[in-house]
Design a protein around this nucleic acid. Structure first.
Lengths: 346, 346
DNA sequence: ATGAAAGCGCTAACAA
DNA sequence: TTGTTAGCGCTTTCAT
């Protein structure tokens, strides 16, 4: 069923039908109703390709994923974000295009996307310090919103981010309030903007409390179970061992837990663990893991916000002012962050 | 830069340029070279929208994700699969369209996809027993490949699946060979085809060894850490407790482990744990989790195979014979599946 | 308030 | 081997 056919049936011109369907004002209400009714009755759906060609808009948003951004896509954080964004796109009649590219081809991927014209805008995932993408996209004139921030990009750009600095500042302060003085940081790769910000928050809190910043209690790397395990093994074996851990990932926290248990220490009694949770929504899958405490933010919600911001931006045109959005993480306190036993005793 | 402009520059007709670029045989080699050279030099990229409209092919593959298929997309298995499929699409110049839809709208989503014509085919994820999608897609004439199987769909259809039945049959047999007679199954939701097949494999092995099928040792549900924990607590407390666990998910296995450790039992000494791993690629993230044993299959590879099969199918046309592909899981044996201590002693 | 006509950028018969 | 001519299904001036 094409527009032409539908028009024929109604005894109208394709123009009028098009106008009626797209909500143009100059169509009489009676005609509009007739057209709408006929459209649903004949199960008419405009051909997207034709629409795209005629309007020049792709009606699609791109997500470019370098193949080995540590399997970005396999990251539940990413997946949850995508789910949120997808909801928004679907509601707006936009397609979501996921583009998996070899690492070296990322720049070319954006250029191609641009010149082939198969997206109206893109979301930038996993920004690093010194990330080249904002500059590239600005140059290409391809609308974008960054999920996270590129702290050292000078020009204004649209972003949606969790307040990582503040989350880790508060987490550290919280552990300090419990009496801990040896608070370890098990962080993600600090080339990533979010991880750098987390460290900054951690350090700010230490400084504010007059606690020493001990490199032996700070580690950064791939956020895996093994990372947490290895880090905790080392930090629990120090002459002046860690009594609390602040980790960047639930996986790392699980590794920390394993190290703690192996030593016969009690979680939440001898040692406290606090983790910033983005993955929890996946890991717990509806059931609370009682062993962890988390600062919790909704990645899916971030996806929705990011997507909506991009659509708004596309609709508003390139001259419109640039929006940003900072989401606060919620500190959720659980068993594993009780004051350490020996701290109470002393 | 459009085809027309490029043709003008070259003093050729758009047709010839198009033919040269698309590898049609009737173009002279010299012309083809000239055209190709000019195209790269002027950074020409054909407009996808126009191509789509002219050819009627969408040059895109759809993945429809019901919003709450337990957050299918948040499932690392899904994400890894997508990454594999994405590679293939990219190489073939196809877009990957992810469509997030409300659960009730899934059927409508396929119909709309069809009539809007924005995909050439779809991949069916997470098939259940009695899944209505193959019939719907056959009716719509929309090419598809199922990742998994719909065992009770009568008509032939294209699928790519891991041999779940055999994997669990072998896993059970393996545990039995170690001397275990009380082997528990902690399965996924058995409305899912893969989980039903796993149970069938488990039961077949029990029957083959003359072991009793004890409902108290069989559970099925959401594959979470909590599920494994709860199941193991119950099954270890039986008058005749489980000595080995076969689980459908690494998360469940982690729960089982927690229950075992809480009881002061030693993993791989007092109790064996074997888990079918699809998630391991994510969980371990390059590092072996020493505590688990896994039958391992590459989900990403399955994604590649599935995608390629679909593209082939689309190219071959609706009359072409239907392909299927069964992947064997590899049984990887680790510490946690050593024969239970008391079994050796007795 | 409605319609006629041109065109978006490309492909694909059909001619030459 | 190359070019001419129609479209693909829709939007969008410009008339009426």
């Amino acid at each position: 069923m094409t527009l032409k056919e539908l028009a024929q049936i109604l005894g109208l011109s394709p123009t009028t039908v098009s106008r009626a369907l797209n909500g143009y004002p100059e169509v009489s209400e009676s005609t509009r109703r007739r057209v709408a009714e006929a459209a649903t009755r004949h199960n008419y759906h405009p051909n997207v390709q034709a629409k795209r060609l005629a309007t020049g808009r792709a009606m699609a948003i791109g997500h470019v994923i370098p193949i080995s951004t540590q399997h970005e896509i396999v990251n539940p954080v990413f997946a949850d974000f995508i789910a949120g964004a997808g909801e928004v796109y679907a509601r707006a009649g936009y397609d979501m295009i996921i583009s998996i590219v070899a690492d070296d081809d990322e720049e070319q991927a954006y250029r191609t996307l641009r010149s082939k014209g198969n997206v109206d805008g893109v979301i930038v995932h996993g920004p690093k310090r010194g990330d080249p993408r904002p500059a590239l996209l600005d140059e290409l004139g391809l609308p974008y919103v960054v999920h996270g921030r590129v702290s050292d990009y000078a020009a204004p750009y649209a972003w949606v981010d969790v307040n990582n600095t503040r989350a880790f500042e508060r987490g550290t302060a919280f552990l300090s309030d419990l009496g801990h003085r040896r608070i370890a940081l098990v962080n993600g790769l600090e080339s990533m903007d979010f991880a750098a910000r987390r460290r900054e928050g951690y350090e700010a809190a230490l400084a504010a409390r007059g606690l020493a910043r001990d490199p032996a209690l700070m580690t950064a790397g791939e956020m895996t179970e093994a990372q947490g395990y290895d880090a905790a093994c080392a930090m629990l074996s120090l002459p002046d061992p860690a009594t609390a851990f602040l980790t960047s990932s639930l996986l790392s926290a699980m590794g920390v837990r394993r190290a703690i248990e192996e030593r016969g220490l009690a979680l939440g009694r001898d040692v406290s663990v606090l983790t910033h949770d983005d993955e929890l929504s996946y890991m717990k899958n509806g059931t609370e893991l009682p062993i962890f405490t988390a600062t919790r933010s909704s990645v899916r919600e971030a996806g929705r916000i990011c997507a909506q911001m991009l659509l708004d931006r596309i609709a508003a045109g390139p001259e419109a002012p640039i929006a940003t959005r900072l989401l606060e993480a919620v500190l959720v306190v659980g068993q594993s962050t009780a004051p350490a036993r020996h701290l109470i005793a002393s």
